[in-house]
Design a protein around this nucleic acid. Structure first.
Lengths: 192, 192
DNA sequence: TACGTCATGTAAGTCGTTACATGATTGG
DNA sequence: CCAATCATGTAACGACTTACATGACGTA
């Protein structure tokens, strides 16, 4: 979904500044299923303001730069729910880590193990963030989305930790060498 | 990772045409962790050819259009493993479905249920594709990547099916109305 | 007959990222 | 004192997607 819609969606829950929205999308409760950076959020908010889908108020706190706090308008809500009529597109998962893993047997063996370890600790961190958010949250739909992320990351963590154990117990004889080291034509061309 | 690298990676396993690569990325064994369309693959292959990282041979089968079958060169392999020295970026998961789910209580209740049902059947399909690929595959690293996808999708399926049961057993009284319907400031601003 | 698959390719356009500019304040 | 955080914004650039062009063959 576009950053426009993301902004509108967040503002439909409560007033926020561009800075806040970016935080939510980058590290906060929305970060496990969407992304957005300043360079897309600020222009989006400017555009939404022009279209009267949002308004803002400049709020100056002492010792801090003034912030533009945005509110969604009635027209904004309508536009949002208009957008929600369109069926959602498919989920997208991209993993450079998994791509790298395809070459695990061609990399120095420590190299892949390092990646595994790093991934495991990243997943744990992500999980603890999501769990913490889940505990605090009493908004039904948000809990659902949080739970989804927790379930996914738990499964990944379990898978990776299980794999690491197997991997380490095979150290001497080269874990991946047990099986064929080359993909054949059939496997690669067989689409689902 | 860039489409260039994806092409190089696939060709490091075996010779392929642009058409084949696109299939692998769109529906095949690579589709659960990357994406690429014709519009990015063909230019990438042309560029790689210019740089002598790949070569191609035109193969004409009867009754079918001629295909350009690409092979990776030694320089190509070196470039690939050069790229693999750079630590992989973070996994990215984007879900329009989860974004939509945030407004589950503001949509006509059947609407969200429909999305759930659709998501469940999509996940089942994805899973059966991955499982089938996993059974056929005897390349260690690929099995790892496949297993990762299977673990993730199994967890999602379980979560969604469990939720559907709970959701349906609450039909009369409006599932989400039990809890607060508005997110408050704290929840939204609390980053991880 | 009309659509789907095989097969390659291009061009325009979208959308977003990265990096920079600016500047005050707080904490190690 | 330096780095990080708070806070807004712009401009250049990058990478990919969508849609189109082309055409033959098989199948419902």
């Amino acid at each position: 979904m576009h950053v426009r819609t993301l902004c509108l969606g967040i503002l439909s829950f409560c007033d926020k500044s561009g800075y806040d929205i970016r935080k939510l999308a980058a590290d906060g409760n929305f970060s496990h299923f969407c992304e957005a950076s300043y360079g897309s959020i600020y222009p989006a908010l400017a555009q939404l303001t022009e279209e009267d889908l949002v308004t803002f108020e400049v709020v100056a706190l002492d010792g801090k730069p003034p912030r533009k706090v945005y509110s969604i308008t009635q027209a904004g809500r309508e536009a949002l729910f208009e957008t929600l009529q369109i069926p959602p597109g498919p989920d997208r998962f991209k993993s450079e880590f998994l791509f790298y893993s395809l070459f695990a047997d061609k990399l120095p063996s420590n190299e892949f193990r390092k990646l595994l370890i790093r991934k495991i600790s990243e997943t744990k961190e992500k999980l603890s963030g999501l769990r913490h958010a889940g505990e605090v949250c009493d908004h039904g739909p948000s809990s659902f989305a949080l739970g989804y992320g927790i379930a996914m990351n738990e499964a990944v963590l379990e898978y990776l930790e299980g794999f690491l154990v197997k991997f380490d117990s095979h150290q001497g004889d080269g874990f991946f060498d047990q099986k064929n080291s080359d993909l054949n034509q059939t496997e690669l061309s067989d689409a689902r």
